[in-house]
Design a protein around this nucleic acid. Structure first.
Lengths: 347, 347
DNA sequence: GTCACAATTGGAAGCGTTTTCAATTCGGCG
DNA sequence: CGCCGAATTGAAAACGCTTCCAATTGTGAC
């Protein structure tokens, strides 16, 4: 393994000059720079980041904490984060805390504090103020995506407003019997989006003078399969059926559509369904949705972070609202004139 | 920021002893160990991994290179890898190379060589021998999952055998008009699974004396939406229709099922579909599949790697076949007696 | 109560860079 | 041609640990 020393010798320069030449910092004559780079290339030399970090205090490494990379939203964000980070020459250390609260705790307390990362991106995690302060105390900027982080910068979409818009879309089409599928309790714990979206739903319903029926407020776990099961309950019950469902995520909307098909309900003829996300699968189902460009959110988070790191200006906590896009496809339409069909469709 | 020196003072021990106590290595009396740990806890001290790594040469960090965390298989593997790594106190540096060959190249040549990772896990990537040697040369063990890595350890499922088994399952049910959906050319490039699976399919067909029709060999991009489009072509054509489809992944199988439903084809009554993966969504569709436990593969990769790292025995390249599980659900059945129904079903 | 040997402990030399500070060189101007 | 400030350069001191080596302490056997 060649060291910077070898490069210096080969280039006929001092270690210090080579260091400056390779890192791009400081004043180095073009001639020296070239020599250093040539020598490094010839020796196949790459800086040891450990030594660099130790000496400079900068890591070129960002920690990303996600509830589970296996989920659509998080993996989308990670893709955006990863691409932007790699472009900037940064490494990305992934902390996937899907194992539960213990894992989350150990990551926050054992891993992140080891001075290995320059900054932290927390996706949909509700960190306590103490946890945030702990990180800020060791000069680790944090930016949160889609989670309330008191005292830290965040990027978020207007959950409440979007939910209102989605609901209003249904209302404007003429629906009044609208169900809402949201995340279940376990999700509220970590990221409280579901609640926020539910708030928007209720607000829109109230504004339109429509009744929110408790039995039409169902929950699922944000997955297609979970929503499918919930939707079967909702749509298969003998009681009255809604004419539209607003699901708090595309995956849940898709689960709902699948359940509806099982019952012979045509979407959107018998049942309108709208989601939130911009999931790739939406197209297959003609899903009307609100695209939140998760990748873009990840990319933006990195840009904010890097800007902060490089300017060394602490910047303070900023709260950025990320724009979303209403995508109307074919899963929403005017409600059936004759009211909902019986559960056992004429299939 | 407290340093190990502060801990040593507070504990009334030498720096060396504290270091040994905290790292668990070397002989330290229980009494000293306790003192050191107590002092560290009181000061909120955590080792600086940079300094540790620099001094010891060990990083406690594994690099994971994946084609795209946004895809089912890769994110599953990453979950398994992450959990096992975190348990062992290791960090996971994620290199998501979905941006294409340039990104792949820069990761392999700029990032991985910076001595930041102790080992590399490459998922479904076909590395050149040169790339592998480059890594091995700097003492970075590599283990590959689902990709041929000449000279490195690998974990793989028996792709060919599985494909044969899946095909035989259909044949045994009485099918003879069997289509196969596999990955398209762009996928062949990076990981050549599709080809291997296709080989198994052809082998089973040949063994049963069945004809492989070129027009029933379709390709897709491994996603539900991509397969859906391909399957529409396959099933909607005016030509004869197969009675069964063997898809090289569950997502493609699901896309096929969705397309079939669009045409009013009942699964499995009119069309049997089988996949490979063990995708969570399989249950919703009653998909018969071969579960390859991607998480388990990730976990195993880490265990192999860590065993190698800790024993310092280079071990040489091992090739481990990972077991799979045949899961029969309701998407496969005997073929329709009266032959396939016309494209426009009596829905 | 000794002695040999093992278990602990502390001192200090790195690990491979970055960066400060002072020294040196260079270019331009009077 | 000589002088001055700016641009370059090099020496050496960190950075915060790990670990070798030697010194010290503890243990059990005789």
């Amino acid at each position: 393994m060649p060291g910077i020393k070898d490069v210096a010798e080969r280039a006929g320069l001092s270690i210090a000059t080579v260091s400056r030449a390779l890192s791009g910092k400081g004043n180095v004559s073009p001639r020296s720079r070239e020599r250093a780079q040539a020598a490094a290339a010839e020796l196949g030399f790459v800086l040891s980041y450990h030594a660099s970090s130790l000496a400079s205090g900068r890591n070129h490494n960002v920690g990303v904490v996600v509830p589970s990379v296996h989920r659509w939203f998080f993996s989308s964000v990670v893709e955006g984060v990863s691409a932007t980070l790699l472009d900037a020459g940064y490494d990305l250390t992934l902390y996937n805390v899907s194992e539960g609260p213990d894992r989350r705790h150990s990551v926050l307390n054992d891993f992140l504090l080891r001075k290995r990362v320059d900054a932290v991106i927390a996706v949909s995690l509700e960190l306590s103020e103490a946890e945030i302060q702990q990180l800020l105390a060791i000069h680790r900027p944090i930016v949160g995506i889609g989670g309330p982080l008191p005292g830290a910068s965040t990027i978020r979409i207007n959950d409440s407003g979007i939910a209102e818009a989605a609901t209003n879309h249904l209302i404007r089409l003429g629906h009044s019997r609208i169900a809402h599928m949201t995340g279940d309790a376990s999700y509220q714990q970590d990221f409280r989006l579901p609640g926020t979206r539910q708030g928007g739903f209720e607000k829109a319903m109230a504004a339109a003078g429509l009744q929110v029926r408790p039995e039409w407020q169902v929950t699922a776990d944000f997955t297609i399969q979970g929503a499918y099961a919930s939707a079967r309950q909702l749509l298969g019950g003998s009681s009255e059926r809604p004419t539209a469902v607003f699901a708090a995520s595309d995956e849940m909307a898709i689960g709902t559509i699948l359940a509806a098909r099982d019952f012979g309900l045509r979407v959107p003829h018998d049942l309108s369904v709208i989601g939130i996300d911009g999931h790739e699968l939406g197209e297959v189902f003609g899903l009307t949705t609100i695209d939140q460009d998760a990748r873009g959110q990840g990319a933006l988070a990195v840009r904010l972070l890097l800007a902060g790191l490089e300017d060394a200006a602490d910047g303070g906590a900023t709260d950025t609202e990320f724009p979303t896009k209403f995508v109307v496809r074919s899963s929403t339409a005017v409600p059936p004139v004759d009211g909902p069909r019986p559960a056992d469709g004429s299939r």
